[in-house]
Design a protein around this nucleic acid. Structure first.
Length: 439
RNA sequence: CGGAGUGUAGCGCAGUCUGGUAGCGCAUCUGCUUUGGGAGCAGAUGGUCGCAGGCUCAAAUCCUGCCACUCCGACCA
């Protein structure tokens, strides 16, 4: 992509409404534009990050056996009356009327709709287990949206819904998602710690919030430091081995970890002092088993092997990709700007022509740009007529993992300079070796 | 929803107290010179001062009402 053909409205000054670093940097880097309180347009650079995150989420959801579909944003109130939540949900639900004066709503979540889809088709235990997910925009009319996309009213959510014959089956479905989440966050370069969450009226131990530690986090969290060194299940982990999957979950829930709402000071004090971590955290995922809460009132029942029928056991599993963009920045930035992990980076490399209009640098850049494209490397070529300093500042701000700098100084020896954004480390390499150096 | 603020050019701000024909920096445009960490000089463009009403010879400035946005708190993915 040529920068002169891209749409990248960089801001030199920080808009005053942006308080936390991720919000500031997203506005400055031209990723995001606020349209109303808690409502944002995703500009091209931001959209690329969002889609990179979605890709990782999809790959891990699919790997665990979940199946993608897509449900509408606008829902009929009737389904919500069936579950009883139309009246229970409160003002956070954005309620709308259509031209026929029918009650509609902009979905804040999709339990009712997915249960309706399930009950329409699935009648037999033989079709279980089933896990369906989608990635769709949600709206919750927050009293006080803040922190940019960290807590917006409109937000993107991956929500998965599992259906099983009984609680044991549902536990395995839960465990599979648990592992998929560990892998998803790890691939995005985040250390996410599963913390026991409130299960509400259902009870039990099957609800976890996945929290990343960041100084600007929204809530206080407490955990055992050993979690930070735990290994994440590799891509060959079999999701069908019930015992093995349970072992992994058991290990990842063996040590103390809790948000302030669930905090048990006595249990925390029992941890050796040098192993205690008390920090701020950002919730990036939430998984939940809720049994027959929706299947029973909405009559989502299947026939069992013995001929009797019973409501299915369900769970739901959320990740907020739009919030993850902000969380990634909170966890990866410096004074100059964002530092993207490769899996989420909008482009892999910035190609900087330090003397636009100079035949030698123009030629070398064109050659490199084509070589990168041929190698399948996503590159953003800064071909603006700007001075070197402006290009360095832009590249650091938008935080692509690599920068290839092409200027008369090194080109004299037939070399270009490659900079790793995360470390600042620079190396001089012959032009012909540049693509291989970052691949 | 309680409390506190802010709305003046694309962005950041001054001007409001004490009413008198709207200003600064950056950005943008033109020209020349520059070219390895946000260049210099010269010139230029751009604003119904959030909206509506009122007081006044005269309102960004005073009064009344409304709207939008932000921050703290309670609440939430």
């Amino acid at each position: 992509m040529l920068l002169t053909r891209f749409f990248l409205p960089i801001l030199r000054d920080t808009p005053k409404e942006a308080e936390i670093v991720s919000h500031r940097l997203m506005l400055r880097a031209g990723m995001l534009r606020q349209q109303a309180a808690g409502s944002y347009a995703w500009l091209p650079l931001g959209l690329r990050v969002l889609e990179k995150i979605n890709r990782v989420i999809r790959e891990e959801q699919n790997r665990s056996g979940a199946v993608e579909l897509l449900m509408p944003t606008i829902q009929s109130a009737d389904l919500w009356r069936e579950s009883g939540r139309y009246d229970a949900y409160g003002k956070e639900m954005l309620r709308i009327k259509d031209r026929h004066d029918r009650d509609m709503l902009y979905g804040p979540t999709n339990e009712e709709m997915i249960t309706d889809i399930f009950r329409s088709y699935v009648k037999s235990y033989k079709d279980l287990p089933l896990n369906l997910y989608h990635i769709q925009w949600k709206f919750r009319d927050e009293v006080r949206p803040r922190f940019g996309v960290m807590r917006s009213r409109e937000f993107l959510m991956k929500d998965a819904y599992s259906f099983d014959l009984d609680q044991a089956g549902a536990r395995h479905a839960y465990n599979k998602m648990f592992i998929a989440y560990l892998r998803t966050f790890a691939r995005l370069g985040l250390k996410a710690i599963p913390m026991r969450a409130d299960t509400g009226p259902i009870g039990g131990d099957l609800s976890h919030e996945f929290i990343i530690l960041a100084s600007t986090g929204e809530s206080e969290v407490f955990c055992h430091k050993d979690y930070l060194d735990f290994g994440v299940p590799d891509e060959n982990t079999s999701f069908d081995e019930i015992g093995r999957v349970q072992e992994i979950v058991d290990k990842w829930t063996s040590l103390y970890a809790a948000t302030s709402e669930m905090h048990d000071q006595a249990a925390f004090d029992a941890i050796p002092e040098d192993k205690r971590a008390s920090a701020r955290g950002i919730e990036v995922g939430h998984i939940f088993y809720f049994g027959t809460k929706y299947s029973e009132p909405m009559k989502a029942v299947v026939t069992k092997p013995d001929g009797s029928s019973a409501p299915v056991h369900m769970g739901s599993y959320g990740i907020g990709p739009s919030r993850l963009v902000a969380a990634l920045i909170e966890a990866n930035h410096d004074d100059a700007g964002v530092i993207w992990p490769e899996a989420a980076a909008p482009f892999k490399v910035a190609l900087l022509n330090l003397k636009q209009g100079d035949a030698a640098t123009d030629g070398a850049c064109a050659q490199l740009y084509h070589a990168l494209a041929a190698a399948g490397v996503d590159a953003l070529y800064d071909d603006r007529d700007e001075r070197p300093g402006a290009k360095f500042a832009t590249a650091d701000l938008i935080g692509l993992p690599w920068q290839i700098m092409v200027g008369p100084r090194s080109l004299g020896e037939g070399k270009v300079e490659i900079k790793r954004r995360a470390t600042g480390e620079r190396t001089l390499v012959p032009i012909a070796d540049a693509v291989a150096a970052i691949a």
